[in-house]
Simulated assay, not measured.
Amino acid sequence: MRKTTPGRSYRTFYSFLAAILLMGWLNPQAVQATPAAPTIHAQAAAVIDVTSGRLLYNLRGDETLPIASLTKIMTAIVAIEHGKLSDTVTVGRNAFAKEGSSIYLHMGEEMSLENMLYGLMLRSGNDAATAIAEHVGGSEEGFVYLMNEKAKMLGLMHTHFQNPHGLDAKGHYSTANDLAKLTSYALKNQQFKEIVRTPSKTAPNPNDPWDYKWLNKNKMLRFYDGADGVKTGYTKIAKRCLVSSATRGGQQIAVVTLNDGDDWNDHRKLLDYGFANYPLTTLIGEGQEIEQGLITGAEFKYALATEEASHIERRLKLTTARTGSFGYRGKISVLLNGEEIGTVPVYDKISYRPSGSGEGSEPRAGGAFGSASDRKLIRLPSDWSDAFKKVLQSLLFDVQ
């Protein structure tokens, strides 16, 4: 049997080490590191940038678990989208004296849908949830159908609802990742955003000489700088559940934890982690002239770690036919590590419509415009315009 000398072993080891280091030098992506996340106590967790919808962190993010009153995030957004805030909601026998957390509505009591939503989200009223569901959906079952249809529409593949309040029930579950995506969607609705950020709310009380006054159960609104939502939850089976959000420097981040006995402190850590490591960065500006006669139709922002800057790529895809509406000429695809993370429409400059006209940055992996035969792919040259150079520089220096 052939023996290996110590000198030869060392040479072999150092040669192997040198090869690994050389591979990393030639391919920086191979050694690209993810920022280290803090230690937390949750069974499952997720962190999301609200603007871009990018999941920044997850711990067992796709594990299906009971979610308690985090259910009411879906209840609220479905009610806002399907109901009329000025509607009068009447409390029926199913809502009256509903078990669990309550805003203590009386049988037959009438309240506006808007005020009912404040009672739902600030005090987690199960009676309010049931009354809202019966008013908006015609019945609790009808409303739950709308909730599950909304979950499908949002691509929440590991979520299913059995009721509008979150009391434990077989087949009622979600995941940290799905709840993060739902929250990101809901926070883009101005009415929802206003409700969940409200520290306290006063509403007319027809049964007593004093008004209702509801203090928000979400302590993050008082304990974390910039906090602006979202919802607490607890049942004996689900344990402590929390979704929080905060805005700093124009960036809003949301955090989800499920079954977390130290959720207030863990949310502080995870929000700090998101803001410190994934600043919202402008990658493309609205109205930027990209080449003679062409202009971008929207801005594109993305939560981006510093070490990811060199892995961003932009590709301009133009249609050969000019039959698109309002001078539409194609789109810029933005890629991170070769994967499309979003697109921005491109127009003829003379026919460009400013923001608010119905055009905007498009979601990731959007459909192609036109067939493959009437498109051409252009890699953007490094000197395409001084204006757009500034946008490229923002990748490194312009944190919004």
Rank of each mutant, 00 (worst) to 15 (best):
I67H: 00
D383S: 12
S69C: 07
Y10K: 15
C241Y: 01
T5C: 07
L122W: 10
S174Y: 07
D211I: 03
L294N: 02
R248E: 01
I132F: 12
S361E: 14
E194C: 04
R60L: 04
G100L: 01
T319N: 13
E307H: 12
K389I: 07
A97N: 13
Q288M: 11
D228T: 01
Y212N: 02
G137K: 14
T51A: 15
L187W: 02
L396P: 01
W384C: 11
V31K: 11
Q29W: 14
S382D: 14
P279D: 10
L396K: 15
G53E: 08
V50N: 06
A246Q: 02
L113Y: 07
E286A: 15
K150H: 13
H165F: 02
H158K: 06
R364Y: 07
G330D: 03
P164M: 06
N216C: 06
Y14V: 11
G138Q: 12
L380H: 06
S385P: 11
Y234N: 05
T159S: 12
A131I: 07
D228I: 00
E362V: 13
D272Y: 01
D62M: 01
K193H: 15
M1H: 09
L335T: 07
F369N: 09
E149S: 10
P345L: 05
L283R: 11
G226H: 02
A309L: 10
D272K: 03
M157N: 13
E340N: 11
S333N: 06
D348W: 04
S69P: 09
G324K: 02
G249Y: 05
A276T: 00
R60A: 11
K219A: 01
F161N: 02
A176W: 00
Q393S: 12
V346C: 02
G261I: 01
L65D: 01
R197Y: 02
D348V: 02
S351G: 00
T343H: 09
W264H: 07
K217M: 09
T202L: 08
G366K: 06
M116H: 03
T88N: 13
T12N: 11
E114Y: 06
F326T: 03
G83P: 14
T71M: 09
V256N: 00
E286H: 05
V255N: 02
K349C: 00
Y185H: 14
K389M: 12
S394W: 09
K236F: 04
M147T: 10
Y328R: 08
F161L: 05
K150R: 15
G233E: 08
S382G: 10
